[in-house]
Amino acid sequence: MDKVRIGIIGMGNIGKHHASYLMAGKVNRCELVAVCSTSPGKLQSYKPLKIYDDAEKLIKSGEIDAVLIATPHYQHTSLGIAALEAGLHIMVEKPISAHKADAERLIAAHRKHKELVFAGMFQLRCEPRYLKIQKLIQSGELGDIARLSWIMTDWYRTEAYYSSGGWRATWKGEGGGVLLNQCLHNLDVLQWLCGMPSSVRGFCQLGRYHNIEVEDNVTSYLEYPNGATGVFITSTGEAPGTNRFEIAGTKGKIVLEKDKLHFTRNEADMIEFSKTSKVGFMKPEVWNVEIPFENAPAPHATLMQNFVDAILDGAPLIAPGEDGLYSVELANVMLYSSLIDKAVKMPMDSGAFEAKLNELVTNSKHQKKVVEVSTEDFTKSFNR
């Protein structure tokens, strides 16, 4: 094979975004040959390509070598498994599954087909700002992580957004709210940079700001195996909102806010300084460094190029699909902890959360009026 034939399942806003750069030739050695949607109106402009209204038909068509799954959350697992069993490589949009138990099922299916490439669309891993933070951590410049906080409350959404689809912001349609929908990329970055916590206590408010049944306001407390602590705060109802990511290590502090990355570096490790200093109120001297970075020009296309290179050349994946388990688990455990009103030790019991989610789906009485919302309302979300 010298070219990968790709199909897209799900032609909503993000599916159309992927189709746009693939059709524009932004990814080498691949060709978008087919698109699939259960909404015929979304396919009219793609007539030069193969058109499918049924995902199973596309998967079994023999027309493609790989599939990009960009459907609502609950379909990611079943479609991913079906594609793997049909011998297709898969790229799955976030989240890889609606909950941890389903993510485990998808990962188990891939382990039966290790010759196939399974990647997750976590494009923030391509952003220089996070790559530079990763370098500071991995090089030891930051020292041991002692504390972290991420206030991510600039995901403001209106009632019109939530009313744009009957599946949106429901237990049955999405499996969660701001954590699973808006924050998956941030939760992926959090665990990618800092690892997984050992314990989580979540405080989630369901439908505080909107006429929805899922969480739209969250504060979570995290504890890590090395004793570090953290806080993750998010909301879709707060305006103007804040986006501030801070990591304090024994050798300094990193702050990412308002498109600026600031590193305050201690001249000495704070623990060693405390043990050796003869003066009670002295602190280590610091260097203040502004670290410049550019935005990644086309992060989605970069991940797709990596996916193609992995298929054709065996290149290591930037975002292996199995890594998608961690962000799903973090989203789930913050909600689950709040629902049962106690801290949860990690790893979380995926079966217990699945049972709780099924209970929420069964007891749901939420009804929403669907309204039309323009595509432009969503374009700012593509690179977040």
Score class of each variant (00 low, 15 high):
I9G: 02
M11F: 03
H17L: 15
N28F: 05
C30R: 03
L32A: 04
C36P: 08
C36K: 05
S37R: 06
S37Q: 07
P40W: 01
P40Q: 01
K47V: 10
Y52N: 13
A66F: 07
V67C: 09
T71I: 12
H73C: 01
H73I: 02
Q75D: 08
T77N: 12
I81A: 02
A83Y: 07
M91C: 01
P95D: 10
A103K: 14
E104T: 01
E115Y: 11
F122D: 07
I133K: 00
I145E: 13
M152R: 13
M152L: 10
W155F: 15
K172I: 06
K172S: 08
V178R: 00
C183Y: 02
D188Q: 13
D188K: 13
L190K: 04
L193H: 07
S198L: 00
S198M: 01
F203W: 11
Y209I: 03
H210R: 15
N211S: 14
E215H: 04
L222V: 01
E223Y: 05
E223W: 07
A239I: 14
E246S: 15
K253N: 12
L256A: 07
L261I: 04
H262Q: 12
H262E: 12
R265Y: 12
E267R: 13
E267V: 12
A268T: 03
M270G: 00
M270I: 07
S274E: 14
K278N: 13
G280A: 15
E285R: 14
E294P: 02
P299F: 11
L303Q: 03
P316L: 05
G321Y: 11
V328M: 11
N332V: 04
N332G: 07
S337I: 05
S337F: 09
K345P: 05
D349K: 09
V361K: 15
S364N: 09
Q367G: 09
K368R: 15
K369Q: 07
V371S: 10
D377P: 01
F378W: 05
F382Q: 03
